[in-house]
Amino acid sequence: MTAETVIARLREALGVEATGEDPKRPLDVRHLVVTVPVERWVEAVGFARDTLGCRYFCHLTAVDWKAEGFEVVCRVENLETHLGLTMKTRIAREAPCPSLTGLYRGALWMERECYELFGIRFEGHPDLRRLLLPEDWEGYPLRKDYAVDMPHPPYR
């Protein structure tokens, strides 16, 4: 499966345009990036899982773009054909994001971590709790507006 094939199949199935990670380098099937609207987020990842065969859920995280909202990023891979697909979607700052836990079990903890670090609510997640931080933590520390150097008692 070449990169051009994947791009064409994504275009005809979802109407989105996939690109390489770096425009200065030639297209590589291991490093493809596609941005989908949030309404088609589950559909697009489901297409990558079922049709493109990306059975391996690598990671899920988010990027804080301040006033432009959050960008939820996940990477799925097909370990047989070495297809690596980085999928992105953009949500508003306080808007929820649809959950991928119906597609991948591995998304359970990833979305819990993303929830506690960025404050993104994943709709459809069965158990959206804290994962790593202490129970009395205030705020979402990976947001850009989190005051890192502010001393919080007792030990911060």
């Binding site: 931080l133 520390p141 001393p151 007792p154 030990y155």
Partner: peptide
């Protein structure tokens, strides 16, 4: 300057 680290164990 991380969010999760005690700034010195003498605290």
């Amino acid at each position: 300057h991380g969010y999760h680290v005690v700034k010195g164990v003498d605290r």
